[in-house]
Simulated scan of single mutants.
Amino acid sequence: MSEEFEIRNKVAESGLVNFDLTDLVPKGIRKGIDLKDFLFQEMILKEKDFREKVAAIDTEEYEGAYIYIYNSADAIVPLWAYFLLTAKLTDAAKKIVFGDREDLEVILMHNAIQTHDFEELRGKRVLVKGCSDKEIPENAYIELVEQLKPLVKSLMFGEACSNVPIVKN
Rank of each mutant, 00 (worst) to 15 (best):
12 A>E: 15
13 E>H: 11
13 E>V: 08
13 E>I: 08
14 S>D: 05
14 S>G: 08
15 G>Q: 11
15 G>T: 05
16 L>P: 00
17 V>D: 11
18 N>A: 15
19 F>L: 10
21 L>H: 04
21 L>E: 02
22 T>V: 13
23 D>E: 14
26 P>M: 10
27 K>T: 15
27 K>V: 15
28 G>C: 10
28 G>S: 09
29 I>G: 06
29 I>H: 08
29 I>V: 13
30 R>M: 09
31 K>V: 13
37 D>R: 06
37 D>A: 07
38 F>L: 06
38 F>S: 00
39 L>R: 00
39 L>H: 02
39 L>Q: 00
39 L>C: 03
40 F>D: 08
41 Q>W: 14
42 E>T: 06
44 I>D: 11
45 L>F: 12
46 K>T: 13
47 E>R: 14
48 K>S: 15
48 K>T: 14
52 E>W: 09
52 E>D: 15
53 K>L: 14
56 A>K: 13
56 A>L: 08
57 I>V: 12
58 D>P: 01
59 T>C: 08
59 T>G: 06
61 E>N: 05
64 G>T: 03
65 A>N: 07
66 Y>I: 06
67 I>M: 03
67 I>E: 03
72 S>A: 15
73 A>I: 03
74 D>E: 14
74 D>K: 15
74 D>Q: 15
77 V>K: 01
77 V>C: 09
77 V>W: 02
81 A>Y: 11
81 A>M: 13
82 Y>Q: 08
82 Y>E: 11
83 F>K: 08
84 L>Q: 09
84 L>W: 02
85 L>N: 03
85 L>V: 04
85 L>K: 00
86 T>C: 10
87 A>V: 06
87 A>W: 07
88 K>C: 04
89 L>V: 06
89 L>C: 05
91 D>M: 04
92 A>L: 03
93 A>V: 06
95 K>G: 05
95 K>S: 11
95 K>Q: 14
95 K>Y: 13
96 I>V: 12
98 F>A: 06
98 F>R: 10
99 G>K: 04
99 G>W: 04
100 D>I: 06
100 D>Q: 07
101 R>W: 07
104 L>V: 05
104 L>G: 04
106 V>R: 04
106 V>I: 14
106 V>M: 04
107 I>L: 09
107 I>A: 13
108 L>W: 03
108 L>E: 06
108 L>A: 07
110 H>M: 12
110 H>S: 13
110 H>Q: 14
111 N>M: 09
112 A>R: 00
113 I>W: 00
113 I>S: 00
114 Q>D: 13
115 T>N: 12
115 T>F: 05
119 E>Q: 12
120 E>M: 12
120 E>K: 13
121 L>F: 11
122 R>P: 01
122 R>H: 11
124 K>E: 07
124 K>G: 03
126 V>C: 04
126 V>L: 09
126 V>H: 02
126 V>R: 02
127 L>N: 01
127 L>P: 00
128 V>T: 06
128 V>G: 04
131 C>R: 11
132 S>H: 12
132 S>C: 08
133 D>P: 01
134 K>G: 01
134 K>T: 09
134 K>L: 13
135 E>D: 13
136 I>R: 03
139 N>K: 09
141 Y>A: 00
141 Y>R: 01
141 Y>V: 01
141 Y>K: 00
142 I>D: 06
142 I>A: 08
142 I>R: 07
143 E>R: 05
